[in-house]
Design a protein around this nucleic acid. Structure first.
Lengths: 192, 192
DNA sequence: CAGATTGGCTAGCGGTGCTAGAGTTCCGGT
DNA sequence: ACCGGAACTCTAGCACCGCTAGCCAATCTG
């Protein structure tokens, strides 16, 4: 039975290798450079092996996205924990969010932009994504007022998402980035 | 000389046909269906003809985006003109913006999402896009407060953009859409 | 040790964006 | 009126893409 165990272990290892290779390649050269052929070469197996682990390229990207959203959740949690007062917590988590998107654009794309079947607003939301969202929600709780917290959080989050995506695509003046973040935070932390 | 004139006219006509075919195909079947071969078949010319008009597929998409942003500007202007008071103007233009993105997702993608060389925040911004932005800015002017109007507008616009893109990708609960819009408008129309 | 099963491989399909070079049509000067 | 040359469009093909069928070797089972 231990032979089977070894095989399963090796198989799991290879699966992690595929995800890691896809992530690294995407982060260093963009998702266009992530082709099944290059991925196969990277893990030193032939192309069809990928399809015994994942249904297709989209599934690989989805796996990368799930892994990446775990990183995002960790960074958001750290930012929230480091804050001293509620308002500064919002500013901190917003900065952390934007920094993540800026530092790891390919990963951010996989999580939020690419038309990957990672439905967020439903049962099969990956737990990592739910955690990242929960960090945002807890940070915003003091400022939601009469609004439903989840809806309020979605709106603030959309603001962050819009800021980072529009800036990355060259639609916003980069030098005003921090000021825009400040405006967003200011507008969502007014009481009453 | 009139022969040359006729040729130039026909050439311009064909160029418009290419853009129209790309737009229609994208809107009815998505950008993935817009291939150079199908486009060529649609205009009843061979593939290489496309490249005598545009540098490549990206340039065609950019042309569609420019045309589309004219439509967006018109709809935003109409929404602003129809409003009776400043706060309702913001709500109206926000609704119009979201409706445009919802009704014409492929066009919206071409304008704002696709990594197309349509740099917005620079000199070569298409005049149509600048007009759409100006409509937003004028509507928001009464509420900018101490913030720079352009920066304030960029932030609000990012909020709209985030709402529509995240919802379209299934990351937001569709049934809460109007409530989120209301929250965004509310937060950006508070005075003092 | 023979047979069955598993699993990775080679090769190939139909598609993509794009381009080289052939061929045709039409214009302008003699 | 004609012919050389320019302008233009086409056919054919390149290198790549995601994905899969079917072979073949290694391994496990009786």
């Amino acid at each position: 039975m231990s032979i089977q165990a070894r095989r399963e272990r090796e198989r799991a290892e290879r699966e992690r290798a595929i995800i890691a290779a896809a992530r690294d390649l995407a982060e260093s050269e963009g998702w266009d450079a992530v082709t099944t052929r290059r991925l196969a070469a990277e893990i030193e197996y032939s192309q069809p092996v990928l399809y015994s682990h994942f249904k297709g390229k989209d599934a690989i990207m989805a796996a990368v996205a799930v892994e990446g959203s775990g990183d995002l959740a960790v960074e958001l949690a750290a930012a929230r924990a480091a804050a001293t007062d509620p308002r500064q917590a919002v500013a901190g988590i917003a900065t952390a969010y934007a920094a993540f998107a800026e530092r790891r654009p390919a990963l951010y794309d996989a999580i939020f932009n690419l038309p990957v079947a990672l439905s967020f607003a439903s049962q099969d939301t990956p737990v990592e994504l739910a955690r990242a969202f929960a960090e945002l929600a807890e940070t915003l709780r003091p400022f939601a007022g009469d609004d439903n917290l989840e809806t309020f959080t979605e709106t603030f989050w959309s603001g962050l998402h819009g800021l980072v995506t529009l800036m990355r695509n060259g639609r916003l003046r980069r030098e005003e980035h921090e000021r825009r973040l400040a405006i967003l935070v200011d507008r969502f932390t007014r009481l009453g």
